[in-house]
Design a binder for these strands. Structure first.
Length: 802
DNA sequence: CAACGACGCTCGAAA
DNA sequence: AGCGTCGTTG
């Protein structure tokens, strides 16, 4: 950068923004309200640091998603004068989890690991946990793996080891969970694996207990920056504190800058501790605090709605949220009939935006304003919901109207059965101790190693303290194994060895590239043939798709290979590593790349899948929406039990987190916002009467355009549903704009359906009433002779007496 | 040993 | 409605 170049980094910034950029030494807390130009400030601050002489390799910036890290890095490079900028060499912008994974590989011995460990995802965790529970003779119904794992995860997030957890476990259940925790940890280590929580926990512990490791980190990273600080948990706090240290001797303390917004803290359930940000000033005495309150993203009405809502949180530091903009459309709120009606109305609304719906005539546009009512591209729109299950109906409607859409689910591709199978083979190659992956693939495709044989090998291996693979390799020594099974096992073991060159990855036949390895494994394992033959036999469409996906995986490996840079490892410490490499021994390059590939695959976030270049509407959960912005946003399912979620209604603490979640959703919208609630929503197949979310009632009506379209159907008047005790959505329901044509529905009071009477149902045909449940959620149990399930519990609404 | 169907349970957000 | 487990049959 030129001598005076970095001064340009302050151009166009507000006074507090500029102060934040220039504040480079000592502790700094930036409380950045939604849409206050946070990313702009962070990226310029990093560029400013480098411009004023800080070596790039001494800067560590941590985020929660790969996408956030990638964008931040990109923008810093751009500020420094292009992607080729040498000035950014060694700059580390990454996620907590990636950093920890890299550190743990480089310093495996400090954490009691081997460097080739596997990272277990949620489903691997469940599989392992289930095995452990069974091996402890506990019942999986009294101790469901899911809830046991959540208890263990909680403990880990609070940095409690199995021993410490056991010390606090008083009742029967907790003591058993402690036993599972302990056995589960041992099983993980035996499989040379760590789970997501371990990445943070083991790193935090290693930093605390291993002085040389800690010093290395402290000496390298003199400047620490953490984004979304309100969402850090105890482990992450510990990691940050340890790396920050006490600062250089004679300094004012460490150069740690944290950025966050307590009003956007939405990850309490995974251990995020809001006091990390609230107590920052106490932890770092003399810390500066800069408040970014001015919003540059949303229109005034959207902002007013958000601000009014969040003010209902009692446990909150009041914080200004303002804009100098004027004009802008009111916020739309529609009460819909049911989820199908809701999805139709959302589609209609999105189409209006796409076609350039004029602004609200009641709100005259300030001519200076840039809030153009021009048409909004699909990629500038998003639909948010509280739970993933709400996406399905929405998808149906979007597909029916040929509107392009993408669901933000980063792991979707890797969750597929065929991909998981292929990954299972790759993980075995990378880590032969990985029992969970091995048991997944050992008989997929079927190769004559069934449950009975496998259980025998497993038991034998456990008794002898060996991994499953070691057990398979010595199958000949196992007594009650059939010769057929022994032969099948021998063949399989030989095949595994063929891919790894006998485990050393040095064999002559070993592939030379990652893509080649992936391709070979898919073919030689028989996975390809398995889906091919199935595709032929049943002309099953999904198997064709599976083959395509496997091919796609080969290209993804090739792509990874092209971008992979072994030198760009944030945990590689120049100077220190050369000294160490002698002890570590050389890692075959392909193995290193394979590890990195598997790691990147496991650590993708849902938000990473958001890609505006796709030109489509983005669907995602409210949690995934944090940090993003869209010109048009629709939030669906604003009902009691959905948002706030039913499981959060008991505690005020969780309720306030739900409100923050709602706040996060609202503040993503730049120009137009639609909030919808459905009067009836089907949960687990049963339509249920809902009550509009209390959050809707908290919003300021003067900034909103509210309409109740829930009984816009003439044929419902005077029926059982016209009992109108709707919780008030609005004082003045406006007339309905273009409502989608409703599906015809006929309903009647309970007396119309005596037991034994015959009814017609639009989906299930003709049936007979078995019993009725009167009341608000009136339902009938109906017997259908033409339906597999025979007896269904249905709402009256869709029944006709015949 | 594999494939299929019936039954029963669950039903939140995620790296 | 969707999933996992169990029991039956080929």
């Amino acid at each position: 950068m030129e001598a005076d170049g970095f001064q340009g980094l302050l151009d166009g910034l507000t006074e507090p923004q500029a102060r934040a950029v220039q504040h480079t030494e000592g502790a700094l807390l930036i409380v950045a309200a939604a849409g206050s130009g946070k990313t702009r400030v962070i990226t310029r601050r990093i560029a400013y640091l480098i411009g004023t002489g800080a070596p790039p390799w001494s800067i560590l910036a941590l985020t929660f998603t790969n996408k956030a890290a990638g964008e931040m890095r990109e923008r810093v490079l751009h500020l420094l004068g292009g992607a080729e900028s040498r000035q950014a060499r060694g700059l580390t912008v990454t996620t907590f989890h990636s950093l920890c994974a890299r550190l743990l590989r480089r310093h495996a011995e400090a954490a009691g690991l081997k460097p080739d460990f596997t990272i277990y995802d949620t489903s691997d965790q469940s599989a392992l946990c289930k095995k452990v529970i069974e091996s402890l003779q506990l019942s999986t119904s009294n101790f469901p793996p899911r809830s046991v794992l959540s208890a263990i995860s909680n403990a880990k997030n609070q940095l409690l080891t199995a021993e410490q957890f056991a010390g606090r476990a008083m009742d029967f259940s907790a003591r058993n969970i402690a036993k599972v925790y302990s056995a589960y940890s041992k099983a993980l280590r035996a499989a040379n694996a760590v789970d997501f929580d371990d990445l943070l926990l083991l790193t935090a512990n290693a930093l605390r207990e291993n002085e040389p490791f800690r010093s290395e980190c402290q000496e390298r990273w003199q400047y620490l920056l953490i984004d979304e600080y309100q969402d850090t948990n105890s482990a992450q706090f510990q990691i940050a504190s340890q790396i920050a240290g006490k600062g250089a001797p004679g300094s004012q303390g460490p150069n740690i800058c944290v950025v966050g917004d307590p009003d956007q803290s939405i990850y309490g359930w995974r251990g995020a501790d809001i006091s990390n940000i609230l107590d920052f000033e106490e932890h770092y005495k003399g810390a500066s605090v800069i408040l970014l309150g001015e919003n540059f993203r949303s229109t005034a009405p959207i902002l007013a709605v958000a601000d009014t809502l969040i003010k209902n949180n009692k446990k909150r530091k009041a914080k200004p949220l303002f804009t100098s903009r004027t004009g802008g459309d009111k916020v739309d709120a529609i009460l819909c009939r049911d989820e199908r009606h809701e999805s139709e109305l959302v589609v209609t609304w999105l189409k209006h935006l796409h076609e350039g719906d004029p602004l609200d005539p009641e709100a005259p546009l300030n001519p200076d304003d840039s809030l153009a009512p021009a048409s909004i591209a699909w990629r500038e729109m998003a639909i948010f919901y509280r739970t993933n299950s709400l996406s399905r109906v929405m998808e149906d409607a979007l597909r029916a109207h040929a509107i392009p859409y993408t669901i933000a689910r980063g792991t979707a591709f890797y969750d597929r059965e065929e991909i998981k199978n292929a990954l299972g083979y790759l993980r075995m190659v990378a880590n032969p101790a990985d029992d969970v992956s091995l048991s997944r693939i050992v008989n997929t495709p079927a190769r004559g190693i069934g449950d009975t044989s496998l259980t025998r090998v497993e038991n034998w291996a456990t008794v002898n303290g060996l991994t499953l693979l070691a057990g398979l390799k010595r199958a000949g020594e196992i007594q009650d194994l059939s010769s057929r099974a022994t032969n099948a096992i021998a063949k399989f073991v030989e095949q595994l060895d063929g891919w790894t060159g006998g485990g050393s990855f040095m064999g002559a036949e070993v592939p030379s590239t990652l893509a080649e390895l992936v391709e070979r494994i898919i073919r030689e394992s028989g996975l390809e043939a398995m889906y091919k033959s199935q595709a032929k036999a049943s002309k099953n469409e999904s198997d064709e798709e599976r083959l395509d996906n496997l091919a796609e995986m080969v290209s993804s490996a090739r792509e990874f290979e092209l971008e992979y840079d072994p030198d760009n490892d944030p945990a590689a410490f120049p100077g220190i590593d050369e000294a160490r490499s002698g002890q570590l021994g050389a890692i075959p390059p392909l193995l290193g790349m394979l590890r990195a590939y598997l790691e990147s695959v496991t650590l993708v976030a849902d938000a990473d899948a958001v890609d505006p270049s796709q030109g489509s509407v983005t669907l995602m959960t409210l949690h995934a929406a944090k940090g993003l912005e869209f010109k048009g946003v629709a939030m669906i399912g604003l009902e009691e039990g959905m948002l706030p979620h039913s499981r959060a209604r008991e505690s005020d603490k969780e309720l306030e987190e739900e409100r923050r979640l709602c706040f996060v959703g609202i503040t993503r919208a730049m120009q137009r916002l639609l909030l919808t609630a459905a009067k009836y929503r089907s949960m687990r197949g049963i339509p249920e009467r809902t009550v509009p979310s209390r959050f809707l009632a908290e919003l300021p009506a003067e900034h909103m355009r509210i309409s109740d379209q829930s009984d816009a159907y003439a044929d419902l008047k005077g029926t059982a549903w016209d009992d109108d005790e709707d919780a008030d959505l609005a004082d003045s329901p406006a007339p309905a704009p273009a409502a989608a044509p409703p599906p015809p529905r006929i309903a009647g009071p309970a007396s119309q359906f005596p037991v034994g009477s015959r009814v017609r149902h639009p989906q299930f045909g003709i049936g007979e009433i078995k019993s009725v449940t009167p009341g608000l959620n009136a339902r009938a149990e109906v017997w259908f002779k033409d339906v597999g399930k025979k007896t269904l519990i249905l709402e009256y609404a869709r029944l006709t007496r015949i």
